[in-house]
Nucleic acid binder design. Sequence first.
DNA 1: CAGGATCCCGCTAGATACTG
DNA 2: CAGTATCTAGCGGGATCCTG
Lengths: 146, 146
Amino acid sequence: MATQTAAQRREQAKVEYDAFLAQCPSRALLDRISDKWVVLVLCALGGEGGRDEGTPAAGPAPLRYSELARRLAGVSQKMLTQTLRSLERDGLVTRDVTPTVPVTVAYALTDLGLSLREVAQGLRVWAQANMGEVLTNRDAYDARTS
Amino acid sequence: MATQTAAQRREQAKVEYDAFLAQCPSRALLDRISDKWVVLVLCALGGEGGRDEGTPAAGPAPLRYSELARRLAGVSQKMLTQTLRSLERDGLVTRDVTPTVPVTVAYALTDLGLSLREVAQGLRVWAQANMGEVLTNRDAYDARTS
DNA sequence: CAGGATCCCGCTAGATACTG
DNA sequence: CAGTATCTAGCGGGATCCTG
């Protein structure tokens, strides 16, 4: 297969990626992972139920589709499926189908997904931790420009 | 002014934010900061020219509007201005206008912005570092499902 | 249960033109 | 230089209906 030559071409260009350049593929990848649903899916599969519960870094427990849908309150099936497919294609999550009746599908993080989860975690935690300050800043800004 | 009562209301609800909940404001904030341009602006103002140059964590040097536009290749004035305004309103960046002719405007990170920059950095670096592996995974996925 | 397929609206991002 | 204003095309994303 030609996957080797493709991998080799990439190998020699390994350090060349720069998200500041418009035409660089890493710009598109940054756009992909800079997504609310991506962050939340990664966090959910990472073991976060929402708030920081007792389990600090519990092993990446696989979650079923319906379970994910419940945790990511307000997500549409379309967005959830779309996000999961994208993550699967990029090798961030695995999708395991158990042919029961009805069928059971479990999603889990790969090692690659686990590495991005750390960063995603950071985003979500930051938002939750600094929400109050941001709200205060907005009040001040709006009062000043009103 | 009523900013105090608002701040107090927030104070007592400080730990209540949960981005997994649809109606939680932190969900909206997560959506805001999960943005390609936000990440790149934060990184640029953090001192990154793109690749990891010699300066590991150079002080947050203020950048002018045109300088930012140059670094974020491909960004439209609209998106850049819009992103900067949003960041300013949230208290992540400062906007200093020097009344020269023509006018000079410099943007810089606040302490709050600096804290988010760390995470944003992580996203950009992750995208650049794992671009190759993601590309390989996509090839494999597409070959399998073709 | 875990989606696939469609329809369709909204709003956002981009292009263009203008200004203090 | 550093924006603002306006217009429009495109698609992101929700709602809905259907299926193995």
